[in-house]
Amino acid sequence: MDIQTKPRGCTSFKVRQLMRRLSAHYDAEVSKSGLKTTQYSLLSQVKRLGPVRPVDLAGELKMTASTLSRNLQPLIAAGWIVQSAGADARSLLVALTPEGEAKWREAQHHWKTAQQKLNALLGVERVLALHQLIDESLELLGADDAADLQD
Rank of each mutant, 00 (worst) to 15 (best):
D135N: 03
V55L: 12
S91K: 14
K62L: 15
A28C: 06
S41R: 08
V46R: 00
T11M: 13
D145E: 08
D56P: 00
D144Y: 10
K6P: 01
P7T: 10
A114D: 05
H131Q: 13
Q83H: 05
D145P: 00
D56M: 06
S69N: 12
A77D: 14
T64S: 15
G79N: 06
S44K: 04
P98F: 04
Q115T: 11
D145W: 07
H25S: 12
L18I: 12
L133F: 09
A89V: 10
D135T: 06
G34T: 11
A129E: 13
D56W: 05
D2L: 10
H25R: 08
W80K: 00
W80Y: 05
L68V: 07
R70N: 13
E136N: 15
L122V: 01
S137W: 09
L138Q: 13
A58E: 06
Q17A: 02
E101F: 04
N119Y: 03
T64M: 10
S41G: 15
G100A: 13
I3Q: 11
L128Y: 02
R90W: 04
W104E: 05
E101P: 04
L141T: 08
L72W: 00
R90K: 13
R8P: 00
A147K: 13
L42H: 11
Q73N: 05
Q150E: 14
T37F: 11
A114H: 00
L42M: 15
L121S: 01
P74L: 04
Q116L: 09
G123D: 06
A102P: 00
P7V: 07
R16E: 14
T37Y: 09
T38K: 14
G50L: 09
S44G: 02
T5H: 12
P98M: 08
I134L: 11
S31M: 14
L57V: 11
S44C: 03
L121T: 01
V127S: 02
E139C: 07
Q4A: 14
L133W: 06
A89E: 14
